[in-house]
Design a protein around this nucleic acid. Structure first.
Length: 469
RNA sequence: GGCCCCAUCGUCUAGUGGCCUAGGACAGAUGGUUCUCAUCCAUCAAACCGGGGUUCAAUUCCCCGUGGGGCCGCCA
């Protein structure tokens, strides 16, 4: 059993350069689960040091989607507001000679890199200007370490690097513009981050950050590198794999609980057969020891299955209110709440995503034009027989009091004996087609239940008329 | 190319030397229920990357291959 350590602090540091995507959310989730499991704190840090690419709408998207998913944070910072702190440490390194200005041009560095690749040499920049005392250019950390760098990853064990392969690490474009590896180290230390839980694509950054930490005299946090989220081709999940933004899944009608549950199981599981977890369950069960090492493919079919499970756990009232915006979006804005509740009731077993409601919506809200031949069961039924059945069923429906139309099973109980007596297909197929005008649809009782007595009678009359002419 | 990480059914995974004729879930196939669609129920098919060790015994430990991935920015 792990002990609860209130001093544990984790962080989630997205850069606001695109819509928050599911890979980021998985990282955020694991940080959330770990910190909450230990009664610790989660810091949200907007990494907006790249002024060119950072945008306010993306930053808003981060907080909006995290909130929607139920992932809360305890503190929030914007890196761009911490420039003075970063500059202080930058000056410290410059003054102590641990960092220096490198005035080589981009072109020069590019040429050097190209040559190194061609010569199969180590791609690194060991700057010849270390001791020239220049006062402008890129600020680099002097790297003359020759001892092997090593850190204990909580998920992968010891990972070692040869620091000589790194060259002099760039830490700022200029004094006013510090770079990622430097800022991360300073902020993690300043914010007392105890556990750095991030994607394994950051493993190569770790030795650089270790070096910067040492130069600054900071203590080292515990690292845990998560397996990557993969696309179907097993490469790192990205935009080219299709919709990966949380807002897209939200717009399609995935439940936040399903997304969280699904993401948690990508790279982690408690070692049991349980698949459905609330966020509280996850917080209670989560440990880094159970985190997987290999990358996991983001399989939308399983997400859809899980979403179905969550949709079906909703009450009709809850489902109806979740469905309402999607029904409105499909162009049906004035439906009564009772009507929507009846749609929710019959659609519940058919929905993978809330947006799927638009598939059958026309059956409930519109009358359709169809060919009279569609009314024939198996395509061969006699018209006069169909007319007879429809008229009889119509009469049965007429005799049901309006109030009983609010019970689907009552409607079924009235019509079913008649249908059975005349072979169900002979009665129910034409009835259903009369009601919806389509080959495939929900059952006749379901449609009648949704549209109500008056509308049902009208549609049956219309079908009878169609057959009569 | 260099460095680093990883490796059980198509996919997500259980499995920490014998309980494994390898378990579950999604997807798939078949059958049943059924007026169509969906739901639901039952059944089936499907994996330990290869080769060496260690051991009485390896999916599990070690090594080497192979395969996959990540990173090599004055992006984060």
């Amino acid at each position: 059993m792990e002990t609860k350590d209130p001093k544990i602090r984790t962080r989630f540091p997205p850069s606001p350069t695109g819509w928050l995507h599911v890979g980021n959310v998985r990282t955020a989730l694991f940080n959330y689960l770990f910190s909450r499991h230990h009664n610790g704190a989660l810091v949200l840090r907007i990494e907006d040091t790249d002024k060119e690419r950072s945008r306010k709408e993306f930053q808003d998207d981060i907080t909006e989607q995290l909130s929607w998913l139920g992932l809360s944070w305890d503190e929030c910072y914007r890196q761009s507001e911490r420039l003075e702190i970063h500059k202080t440490y930058l000056r410290q390194l410059l003054e102590s000679g641990k960092a220096f200005y490198c005035a080589h041009s981009k072109e020069e560095l590019e040429t050097e890199h190209k040559r190194q690749m061609e010569e199969r040499a180590i791609p690194r920049h060991i700057c010849g200007q270390r001791d020239e005392g220049r006062e402008s250019g890129v600020i680099r950390l002097r790297n003359d370490t020759d001892v092997t760098l090593s850190f204990a990853d909580r998920i992968r064990g010891d990972i070692t690097f040869d620091p000589q392969l790194l060259g002099d690490i760039s830490i700022a474009r200029e004094l006013e513009s510090p770079l990622y590896n430097f800022v991360v180290v300073v902020d993690d230390a300043e914010m007392n981050i105890t556990h750095v839980i991030r994607g394994e694509d950051h493993i190569p950054n770790t030795p650089k950050q270790l070096l910067i930490q040492q130069a600054l005299g900071f203590s080292r946090p515990i690292y845990a590198h998560l397996p990557l989220l993969l696309g179907a081709d097993r490469s790192k999940l990205s935009k080219r794999h299709g919709d990966t933004a949380v807002r897209d899944y939200r717009a399609a009608g995935y439940m936040p609980e399903a997304i969280v549950n699904f993401l948690a199981l990508l790279g982690w599981n408690p070692g049991t057969d349980q698949e459905l977890f609330t966020l509280e369950d996850l917080v209670r069960e989560f440990t880094l020891e159970k985190v997987q090492k290999g990358g996991a493919i983001f399989n939308e079919e399983k997400l859809a299955w899980m979403n179905r499970a969550y949709l079906r756990s909703l009450s009709i009232e809850q489902l109806a209110s979740n469905l309402t915006p999607f029904i409105e979006q499909a162009g049906k804005k004035d439906l009564s709440t009772d009507f929507i509740k009846r749609i929710a009731y019959v659609e519940a077993p058919r929905l993978s995503r809330l947006k799927d409601v638009e598939t059958n919506l026309p059956f409930y809200t519109e009358t359709s034009v169809y060919d009279s031949t569609l009314l024939r069961w198996k395509g061969t039924q006699d018209y006069t027989e169909i007319i007879g059945h429809l008229k009889n069923v119509r009469q049965l429906l007429c005799d049901i009091p309006e109030a009983d139309f609010y019970d689907m099973h009552h409607i079924e109980a009235v019509i079913m004996p008649y249908a059975t007596a005349h072979s169900r297909g002979n009665v129910l197929w034409p009835l259903r087609v009369a009601l919806c005008g389509s080959e495939k649809s929900p059952g006749p009782f379901e449609i009648i239940y949704v549209i109500g007595k008056t509308e049902a009678l009208q549609r049956i009359d219309k079908a009878i008329k169609l057959l009569d002419t």
